[in-house]
Design a binder for these strands. Structure first.
Lengths: 264, 264
DNA sequence: GCCCGGCTTCCGTCCAGTGGAATCCTGATG
DNA sequence: CATCAGGATTCCACTGGACGGAAGCCGGGC
């Protein structure tokens, strides 16, 4: 960039984005120094850019002076959700209303699931997902449902990697997982028992539009009540079907429901 | 900036932010040309910057090629909400569950209310608010509740302006509005009848922490059922109280519940 | 009082950023 | 099929905004 950049070829924009990207679920607030270091931007440059971001409310300061994502960015983000979430939300709410259980909606992004909506109440259940959060596909209900409906080449390359194993119950053996996926495909829904978090289990169904699984609807409950899971499958499938049809019905307009597969 | 800028003194960052800021509820998707023009950035500059934003997924393209806010920005925005929303949400859900009506949570930002959370179901009710949306204070329940608890100097300068009048029922006469606010203060909640939208009315209560109204909780229903409003006041006040206490109780840690008043 | 870590300010250098203009699309129109 | 219009892309020579190391500042812990 202009002036004596130590690393020519780096654009101003890339630095601004690196600064923003330094925030994540594990680091929602940072000191200037941490931020600069995480973003790989020299401190004094960070200082200058942050001042500008702060003024625009892209970043804000906690009472203790640490930086966090600002109001304005949140507001902007609210403009992103597409038709899928808008259509699906009332149905998630409905499903929550009739079952009283945590319900969430996720899409695939790259090799992970991204939770795009969630409905939950006061009955505390271990927090497995967070709107805006990401988790691996194989140990989660929604991930399993989505993975089962991906083309073979995708599944193959998914299984080819070393799979995380968040709990002792997580299925990671490629062969067994592949059989599991076949079952999911056959029955139309996925069940998991303590594969992501000890103490909770889930059921999930894909939301299919045009033969493609655009998203998955999941329901999570305490594993003490695991035996109630099967009873939830019917309403889950019903709602997933309704959402899929609602989506397919009107114009085939735009959504960000299917972020480009980041490769494989 | 570097090179032959037509408008010296304009930073690269400011252009990037202007580009992002060009999106709003009324313009969630834009062509490159529209975007450049709304942001006040020369087309070719916009083209270059947008490419970089797109690569980072700060912006994304609709199927028709138009630009919209990207997934990554949404994800980032999800990091912003503070303790208030996290604590309050289950209560909104609860209130929705017991009443079946649209429930929302708003804070003041400048001279407007900003809706930070909302719970609603399938029973379609005219959409008065949108998470991430803004509305003027005087014709909305939550706005009225918040305004009533602002210091005099603020209210005075609020009333000194020309007040919007979205419906014929909107109260805009400063004197009458001031009396209305006194009543709200006295009774602890606000009621509005078709002041923002014909066909819907609302009740709202402030969430008071340390004597300050950090936010307001509102409930909206069709005006055909206006007579049911009074019955909703009790649960509304109850929940608002619970949220306030929950917030005050633990550490007085950080939130963005009260964005600095932008002036007067 | 001294030290240490993080924040803020300074300033001379220099290349990234700039944007007008030319070109290339794409889709509508005659 | 030719023409046209509006938007998107590409080019490129000039230049001032951006850079960042270093020095100074501030607060709070010992």
């Amino acid at each position: 960039m202009a002036g004596g950049s130590r690393e020519p070829g780096r654009t101003v924009t890339s630095k601004v984005l690196a600064l923003l990207g330094a925030f994540d679920a594990a680091h929602p607030q940072l000191t200037l120094t941490e931020l600069a270091s995480r973003a790989g931007v020299p401190l004094s440059t960070a200082h200058r850019l942050v001042a500008e971001l702060e003024e625009w409310q892209a970043l804000a300061r906690d009472p203790d002076g640490r930086l966090r994502v600002g109001l304005r960015l949140w507001e902007l983000g609210q403009l992103a959700p597409g038709r899928l979430v808008a259509l699906a939300h009332p149905w998630l709410q409905e499903l929550f209303g009739t079952t009283g259980e945590n319900v969430h909606l996720a899409v695939r992004d790259g090799m992970e699931v991204l939770y795009v909506d969630k409905v939950y109440g006061r009955r505390a259940v271990p927090i497995v997902s967070r709107t805006g959060g990401r988790l691996p596909m194989h140990p989660t209900g929604v991930g399993r449902a989505l993975l089962a409906h991906e083309p073979d080449w995708f599944v193959t390359s998914y299984l080819a990697r070393t799979l995380e194993r968040p709990t002792p119950h997580t299925i990671t053996e490629p062969g067994r997982l592949a059989r599991e996926l076949a079952a999911v495909r056959a029955q139309g829904y996925a069940l998991t028992y303590e594969e992501m978090t000890l103490g909770s289990c889930s059921a999930a169904a894909p939301i299919v539009v045009d033969g493609r699984a655009m998203a998955a609807l999941g329901i999570v409950l305490s594993s003490r009540r695991a035996r109630e899971l099967p009873r939830l499958v019917e309403p889950l499938l019903h709602v997933a079907g309704r959402i899929g049809r609602a989506f397919a019905d009107p114009p085939a307009a735009g959504t960000w429901a299917g972020p480009a597969s980041r490769n494989p």
